[in-house]
């Protein structure tokens, strides 16, 4: 009786079409927008990298091959920006993550007024980035802000001057602003992950005789690890592209000491209107970030395989 052929039942064409197209109808508007405003410009941008595109020069637009990349190889400002990007991204991510994790752990304990505290410490995230930049620029300004005077009083500065105009210290300005602004992101994400850890695991561990440090190492960290890995990866990429604070606070100065690649691209496009060269730099940045992401993913794979 099991040998009879199963005649596949076929609904009418109209119904099949309607059923199959339904999910596409729901997602089409979003997709059209993403393709038109992000994917097409991305492809265009890649093509600009190989063309001479200057907004003010009507005779530009020709295909010039790898000329931009050759110029880039000679561009000392670009290599400076690359070093600054590393420094800016590394310091920002490390500090944001460390303080974000501590904050998330503090907020994971119930206490009176937690809801209010949570809203207040997450508030910097809602501050528009340009305003965060201006705000911190003012705080570092000795005319109007208290920070130079405090740093002088603590002996960290030999005079209450503006660190944003000191080539050796200027990068700390945007980094501090970025840390202030970015802690909530890490705290929110890690707090959400913390709250998803089943409470009875801690109780079981406590009954088994684990102290607070052991509980943190053997339960909290392993549970958070995937979230930490993915947020650190995403944030690293995001922060190395994040030029707002630098554009607002120092505009790359003094003497290009705070110029990162992202702000350099913006300067090339916005101030010099040299879209071709800007796109070439952007393409290099994109490739570097892709390589970085791949390396992280590969590293994770090998670590998983070993474990």
């Amino acid at each position: 009786m099991m040998h009879q052929p199963i005649a596949k039942h076929r609904p009418p064409l109209r119904k099949r079409l309607a059923d199959a197209s339904e999910p596409y109808l729901y997602s089409a508007p979003a997709l059209v927008l993403i393709v038109a405003v992000m994917l097409v410009p991305l492809v265009l941008g890649i093509s600009y990298a190989f063309r001479d595109i200057q907004l003010l020069n009507p005779f530009s637009g020709g295909f010039i091959g790898l000329d931009h990349f050759r110029a880039l190889g000679q561009d000392q400002a670009f290599f400076g920006a690359l070093r600054n990007t590393l420094w800016w991204t590394g310091a920002s991510v490390l500090l944001q993550f460390t303080f974000g994790l501590i904050l998330a752990l503090l907020l994971d304990k119930p206490f009176y007024g937690r809801g209010l505290v949570q809203a207040l410490v997450f508030l910097p995230w809602a501050v528009p980035s340009f305003l965060a930049g201006l705000n911190w620029a003012w705080l570092f300004n000795p005319v109007i802000g208290p920070l130079p005077h405090w740093l002088y009083a603590l002996g960290l500065l030999d005079a209450p001057h503006n660190i944003l105009s000191d080539p050796n210290l200027a990068m700390w300005g945007p980094i501090v602003a970025n840390v202030w602004w970015g802690i909530p992101f890490f705290a929110i994400t890690l707090l959400a992950a913390l709250q998803a850890i089943p409470r009875d695991l801690y109780e079981a561990a406590a009954i088994d005789g684990a102290g607070p440090v052991q509980r943190f190492l053997s339960i909290t960290l392993p549970f958070l690890a995937p979230t930490i890995a993915i947020t650190v990866l995403l944030r690293t990429v995001w922060i190395s592209n994040f030029a707002d604070l630098i554009v607002v606070m120092t505009n790359g100065g003094p003497a290009d000491r705070t110029q990162i690649v992202a702000s350099y691209i913006f300067t090339q496009a916005f101030k010099r209107l040299d879209f071709g060269y800007a796109s070439a730099i952007a393409l290099v940045l994109l490739v570097l970030l892709l390589v970085y992401s791949m390396l992280i993913v590969l590293l994770r794979q090998t670590m998983l395989n070993k474990g």
Binding site: I6, K8, H9, P11, P12
Partner: peptide, 16 residues
């Protein structure tokens, strides 16, 4: 979805 065969309610096929 019905993979194959037929379901009828009051004698009317309702598969689709």
């Amino acid at each position: 979805e019905v993979t194959s065969g037929e379901i009828r309610i009051s004698g009317n096929r309702v598969n689709d």
